[in-house]
Nucleic acid binder design. Structure first.
Length: 435
RNA sequence: GACCCCUUCGUCUAGUGGCCUAGGACUCCAGGUUUUCAUCCUGGCAACACGGGUUCGAAACCCGUAGGGGUCGCCA
């Protein structure tokens, strides 16, 4: 039988990172088995399920490369079928009508649990079971005639012929009810697998206040989709060997639910950042450049392409996230770059620095060719002849021309900046910080 | 509170009874390369929650304890 998994989010305008990880696991599982990965939009909450929210959802999936098979099924189009199924359940004695809780709102349809213990083989957690006494009947159609999640979810999974339901741990309790529903409906019960939750740096469940709870947040922070995908895939799953940075096909080939963790995983932004850096490094040069141009553009910084490419080459190996780009290259495009105040205080505002900068400036002024090799040579000679040591010369120079104490090699920075700007910046730094 | 689930370095994990003096990765620290910063290289710190069993042998199996999590809606 062909494997079919699904991602069934309710569009709320944000895509929660935990949900997205569930989507990734469903996708990986389906692709591994040569099956289908389906999308079902559970848009029954008309208030929140706006076209805009649905667009956000689709965009997040596309960004992460989660392509789904066939057409997306919109749950809102299935209401009549859901209610009809509830009527059948009613007719067969699997459900009854009641004014539950005596609310006076009228009668709703309640599903009658079979009164037997339920157990199932979870793809990740093993055998799970629940005693009949611990399960209660539940509402499947509200008194206003609308179907409840449990009914709709199960019916749609049947409709989409889903074979494997891979979802968050928070659905374990629902599964017992859902299985009873499948059986009453006379449908095959799919395989279930429950993914452990992912928690924040404090070890607590993610909430909106954590900030980094949504896919969009990661995108804004400059993470690459492939890196996020890889990181999330490894949060709760491992291929069983020491591989970590893996190509997507590699993950597809190695994916196995049995190798998934059954305990919660904590997100570690530092490791994600490291992994993102690995992916940045792997990017083809043109792609890296285009990302840089995009970042510059967004920051409202204009750039002459050829010059910009020389700058990008300088920062290529040190950029960990897309968000690193602008702060790191800004000083190449504007005179209005910021100074790292700590660095200024510690390395620039020191006895004798004004004199050193003056001497280096003079040296550079008379340098015949202003290219990286010659500048480097001149700098070295100066350090040697003055007996000052590199630490006394390079850091102040770097801060004077770039505002930062770290960055690409100094000589190339100066070369790319050009003689005029370098000299002007040295003067300005002396005037501003050392007089 | 009831029911269910989980527990290996700070974090993500390997480990399916002897290969474990518990391996890898991130972070951190030290040294080296770069006579600056970063990169890179080498090394280091660091864990089987606890207590009982079972076994010739337990990180692995069983039972308890503690801690954490989930669920208990006419939400999804």
């Amino acid at each position: 039988m062909k494997v079919r998994t699904r991602f069934a989010p309710s569009p709320t305008g944000h895509v929660h990172i935990g949900n997205m990880r569930a989507a990734i696991y469903n996708w990986l599982f389906a692709r591994h088995h040569g099956g289908e990965f389906l999308l079902r939009v559970e848009d029954t909450d008309r208030e929140r399920s706006t076209p805009e929210a649905i667009r956000t959802l689709l965009a997040a999936m596309e960004w992460l490369g989660l392509d789904f098979d066939g057409e997306a099924l919109y749950q809102s189009t299935r209401q009549a079928a859901h209610v009809a199924a509830a009527e059948t359940l009613l007719a067969k004695g699997h459900a009854y009508k009641e004014d539950k809780g005596g609310t006076g709102q009228g009668e709703c349809i309640v599903f009658k649990m079979p009164g037997t213990d339920v157990s199932f083989e979870d793809g990740i957690k093993g055998t799970l079971s629940k005693a009949a006494d611990d399960m209660q009947d539940f509402v499947i159609v509200r008194s206003n005639g609308t179907p409840v999640f449990h009914l709709a979810n199960v019916l749609d999974d049947i409709e989409q012929r889903v074979t494997h339901v891979i979802r968050g741990d928070d659905h374990v309790e629902n599964t017992y009810r859902h299985i009873a529903l499948y059986q009453a409906l006379g449908a095959d019960v799919p395989q279930f697998a429950h993914l452990p939750m992912i928690v924040n740096a404090q070890g607590k469940p993610y909430s909106k206040r954590d900030g980094d709870a949504f896919v969009g947040d990661f995108r804004e922070k400059g993470f690459l989709p492939e890196a996020l995908f890889n990181y999330l895939a490894l949060l709760g799953w491992s291929p069983g060997d020491d591989r970590e940075v893996m190509a997507r096909e590699e993950m597809v080939a190695a994916f196995d639910l049995a190798r998934c963790q059954s305990s919660p995983a904590q997100v570690d932004l530092r490791k994600l950042t490291w992994m993102n850096g690995e992916y940045m490094l792997k990017l083809p040069v043109e792609e890296f450049e285009s990302i840089c141009f995009g970042a510059l553009d967004q920051a409202g910084i204009g750039a002459e392409p050829e010059y910009a490419r020389r700058v990008f080459a300088l920062v290529r190996e040190r950029v960990k996230t897309v968000a690193d780009v602008v702060p790191m290259v800004a000083c190449f495009f504007t005179e209005d770059f910021g100074f790292d105040e700590k660095a200024v205080a510690k390395k620039l505002q020191k006895e004798g620095v004004a004199g050193i900068l003056g001497q280096v400036g003079e040296l550079l002024r008379v340098l015949p060719a202003f290219d990286a090799a010659d500048i480097d040579q001149a700098l070295h000679r100066f350090v040697e002849q003055s007996g000052l040591g590199f630490g006394a010369v390079m850091p102040p120079m770097r801060i004077a021309v770039s505002g930062q104490q770290s960055g690409p090699d100094l000589a190339p920075i100066l070369a790319v900046l050009g003689r005029e700007r370098v000299l002007a910046r040295i003067d300005r730094a002396v005037e501003r910080f050392l007089v």
